[in-house]
Design a binder for these strands. Structure first.
Lengths: 210, 210
DNA sequence: GTCTATACACAGATAGAC
DNA sequence: GTCTATCTGTGTATAGAC
């Protein structure tokens, strides 16, 4: 598909904070390859030997560095709260903005820093949800939802059952992402973003207001 | 936990349509054990040998009967459209009714007929979603959502973008089930059903009406 | 013919050699 | 610190016992 993992090229120098030279470089290469493969092919279909092959290292190193395939998955498929800003606006129209944000990131690819994974992407969420058969993955997913969707808006809602309403709003956003990236309903993925924002956003807004 | 697979006992005679005697009985025992284990422990954590053990048959038979563990999973974790009746009522209050239905079946266990799997349960949905890493499972899930949520209400909505609105409504129901049975948010599972029905139902109703 | 026992293939994980 | 060889466990296929 996309010529993303161009491989050997792009070995340009970094600044100073996070070195791309020395032993760290192998570790980073594994992490980057894993992030790409996991978010594209999923946990099950991605093998340790495949990750190692793309990163240009020995398969045993992958385990040695990260403990297990599952740990590596958890480390790379981590979403951060970088859209705290978006939620920080006025309550008016927050529903529409939240939906628009989710749709905007719908095709986004994973971007990793050298030490921790940053930048949210719907692909990450889908990969987590698809692999939620495993308890550790489920816990990780729950933590992410709590941190990203619930926590950011819970304190801002007023009126009765504010916490419950925030969680129901999180459930709605989860549902939209699930429908688009797991169920992959063509009726949704082919629909115009503007329409989805309008209808779904209005529905969410209903929860934000009492 | 439950003494479900009581095994040898209960070998009572059946009517005439579907025999519980002879070779069919083993097949049925496997299916029943699989349904219970899959919906309780998930696809990955449930082994073929474990299913065979609980059913009291040889592990090889499981594969011989159903082709593969995945095929068996698909066959047992199938939801039917037995709640077509519930959706058949008036459009007024349909949102609340849909949410109430989902919550009602929230703790239901899987019940299988001898030939096909019947009776919807949220556990089945959760098991499917959790195992959606596999393409066949994902296709099966998409089919179920289309058949159960979208198809039943799509023709009934009027106004602009009726199909899109029906799919968005399906996404919301999906989200509620995901939040409760995959993410397992305690703030939702411990909340009163009446509150959830009220808030979430009202939100869904917004989509039903233009 | 139907079930049982055994053998194979593949992936993740480990222990030891350069 | 990095790679080679091996082990374990799971899904799957086959050949033999009643």
């Amino acid at each position: 598909m996309s010529p993303a993992g161009s491989g050997d090229a792009g070995a340009a120098a970094k600044g100073d904070g996070s070195p791309t030279v020395g032993p760290e470089r192998h570790r980073n290469a594994v992490q980057q390859a894993a992030a790409r493969l996991f978010s594209e092919k999923g946990f099950t279909a991605t093998g340790v030997r495949e990750i190692a092959g793309e990163a240009g290292v020995d398969p045993a190193l992958v385990i040695r560095y990260f403990g297990s395939k599952e740990k590596l998955f958890l480390r790379t498929m981590t979403m951060s709260v970088d859209f705290a800003d978006l939620m920080g606006g006025p309550l008016d129209g927050l529903g529409e903005r939240a939906v628009a944000f989710v749709l905007d990131r719908t095709r986004g690819l994973v971007v990793n820093g050298p030490d921790a994974t940053r930048s949210y992407s719907a692909g990450v969420f889908a990969a987590l949800l698809r692999a939620s058969d495993r308890p550790t993955v489920r816990a990780h997913l729950a933590e992410s939802v709590e941190e990203m969707f619930v926590g950011l808006v819970a304190g801002r809602l007023s009126g009765a059952d504010a916490d419950l309403r925030a969680r129901l709003m999180a459930a709605q956003l989860t549902g939209l992402m699930t429908a688009m990236h797991v169920v992959e309903d063509p009726g949704l993925t082919d629909a115009s973003d503007a329409d989805i924002v309008r209808y779904y956003g209005r529905s969410i807004q209903q929860l934000i207001e009492g």
